[in-house]
Design a protein around this nucleic acid. Sequence first.
DNA 1: TTCACTTTTGGGAGCGGTTCCAATATCTAT
DNA 2: ATAGATATTGGAACCGCTCCCAAAAGTGAA
Lengths: 325, 325
Amino acid sequence: MNISEIAELAGVSKSTVSRVLSKNGSVSVKSKEKVLKAIQDSNYRPNPYARILNKKSTNLLGVIVPDIANPYFPQMIQEIEHEANIRNYKIILCISGTTAESEFEYLDMLENMCVDGTILLCPTAHITDLSAYERQSIISVDAVINENIPSICSDFYKGGYLAASKLLENNCKNILHISGHNYFYANIKRRQGFEAAISTAMDSINKYDLLSDLSMSKGFKIIREYFAAHPNVDGVFADNDSIAFMVLRILNELHIRVPDQIKVIGYDDNFMIPMVYPALSTIHQPISEVGRLAAITVINMINRQKVNHVNILDVAYIKRETTLL
Amino acid sequence: MNISEIAELAGVSKSTVSRVLSKNGSVSVKSKEKVLKAIQDSNYRPNPYARILNKKSTNLLGVIVPDIANPYFPQMIQEIEHEANIRNYKIILCISGTTAESEFEYLDMLENMCVDGTILLCPTAHITDLSAYERQSIISVDAVINENIPSICSDFYKGGYLAASKLLENNCKNILHISGHNYFYANIKRRQGFEAAISTAMDSINKYDLLSDLSMSKGFKIIREYFAAHPNVDGVFADNDSIAFMVLRILNELHIRVPDQIKVIGYDDNFMIPMVYPALSTIHQPISEVGRLAAITVINMINRQKVNHVNILDVAYIKRETTLL
DNA sequence: TTCACTTTTGGGAGCGGTTCCAATATCTAT
DNA sequence: ATAGATATTGGAACCGCTCCCAAAAGTGAA
């Protein structure tokens, strides 16, 4: 079934059918009715690719995400998908892992597919130059790539700062910061904020750093060994909630009481937190707002409207059961 | 940049360029080199939509998923995406919620987009007739829709059966089955298996059922009240791990010891389990295998190869810390 | 050199829409 | 009734690629 057959069925020309379908150009009520009836009768679906060939836009949005195991990303994707759909955009999902090659491979693929825009979720620091991708509007989430690429971030610096401040308020003196990567913008900013806050402390503070591959397979061993070697640690800031969960589990095994003996603060505000005991104190990121703003921004950019190149959304400390204050 | 400009640059006809691009038809070495050089020099990217208009296929796969908060789905999507990419298919991700209208809306959209195939992840029981979608090959995962639609499922019946058997082995006499929905095939089969196993018990068993909306906002209250009203329960089977986590959290609040006083078994084998205490005993589903088989099956179906219409993958009981046996 | 055969090539008609343009129909005011 | 303006319509070119087909070029044996 194509537009010519519909035209024949309705007894009009295909130009007229096209006008009815795309709702522009004037069509008499009579013709319009005939066309609509013919479409009804024949279960006709216009071919979007023929249209794309004429128009310049595909109404496709690429989303490149490092992984979707960490629930942070699915939540954001869900929000992006929702906002995009409202505006008649479809999502092409690309899961890149954390290698720069793979990110570029997907960007190439999306460029080939003529997506109208792409949202880079948490790109690695390897991505600095996107000038080769001319057909698509690109924005980044949770990382600042360069001044030409609009970005949406929650305030990682403040998040790190808040975490350290709260550990200090809780009277911790031997503070451990655990993180799994150092090639994401988020980690770097968070660390800066964290260290800035520590350096404001009146008392003398011992700061420890554990930076390692903390995937579940290796993480337990590494963290367990670290606590064995540093029994004096009385405050922990984990770069994400999964790491914090591992810490809590290990402290439980070691019969170290939380929050009496050690305070623990996570990051992300994983939706699982309220389901487990003890409920983790953490830094909450406005995931939905970030996702929504990302979708809106990239679509505005596609439509050549003005967009803010710097968007920093606020974070908040959520006290639960692994800290006293 | 289009194929004609490349042809001009290379000093050949666009037919020849097309032959080089699509690697079929014979082209002399000399022409081929000229064309390749012209493409190199000009950063030309063939327009896939012009190709789609001639060929019949889009190399697009739809994936319709009820939600992506539950980590079960992201894990599966990741696997599907991976397998699809290897075979040069791209994924259109659609998040439908659990309403049948939305599932049909997305199916319509995918039909309009001329996707080659669609994978329905865990469709609701409302979906029974897919005959209106003629252009795409459709399969379902975690549900049997009808005998025309190939399906990939893990063995829910056995999963339910196993869970009940294990609770009986653990000497539970007052067994509670908690589930959040009853409009998914998975829930129905699981319940059948569960009840079949219970009915084989030698001793007299009290079986309780809690079937309700157990989203996190309401779930805690409902479960808490249920335990208050039924203090004799000594074994729990939760339809998924998230519900089981809520149960564990509540039992902890009530100072009821697990597994001494109550045994708990979950379902899914959520990757978070090893990170929290006590680690949940659960029924493990082969998520990756299901995802991989789904991708392979739908692509085989697209290519008109024979596919099995019934695929049931095995599940296994994983004993951790919330049961004794 | 010539003929028969194979390889390579370019022209042109689609694929299914959109859109420009000129032609025709309809309407308004005189 | 008629000129002039406006609304509606169909024809045809075009978007960028594929692929059929016939022509041209290349090959080898007689």
